[in-house]
Amino acid sequence: MRENFRKRINELESRVIAMGKTVETAIASSVKALKDRNLEEAEKIIRDDEMINRQRWEIEENCVNLIAMQQPVASDLREIIAIMNIVTDLERMGDHAEGLAKIVLLLGKETPVEAFTHIPVMADKAMEMLRKSIDAFIRRDAKAAEAICALDDEVDELNDKVYHKMIQSMISQPQTVTRATYQIWAARNLERIADHVTNICERIVYLATGSMHKLPNISTY
């Protein structure tokens, strides 16, 4: 009974890791598509989001079955609850990658307001946070999870920079309003992705310690 349970939990963990990789790839591809103005790639990302959604439902269904059939308690229960929450955040992150891909389509072949400088950096940081969070999840490392949240501030700062730059552009060159708005949206998607990583980190802290609380350094706007 116990061994079977552990085996199924390990399988779930592997699925979470795989889903984390899929989401990371979606983010990387969407930012690359944005830089390269690659409309075909953007369309593919939008189609592939369905795969992420499916992964989430499959993992969640497995969690529900484990709860119903094994009646887990203590750390076993916390792990399943953590996984259910983590995959919800991963799925939302996938939606934001899809959001970025939609912006690629909206921008079309039009020239961006200015070359993308901050957005790829934001994407790199968000992906770094994601990788580290999955790693912390596997290691049940509450300290690492808390440390990851500090990176969210950096993503927020970059988001602010993009926002102010675009507003300035809108004021000085009203013909850029539409394109500048798209770029604000793009940054906003990445900023939200980083926020979802902090949610994942909170779940890791819960899993490791049993304490359910909001972690510091989390943007609330």
């Binding site: 203590a74 229960l77 310690t209």
Partner: peptide, 17 residues
Amino acid sequence: IFTAPCKELTENYITGH
């Protein structure tokens, strides 16, 4: 006790170790 026990022994018992 059933969500986050303080003692490892309790944890091990209720999770079936």
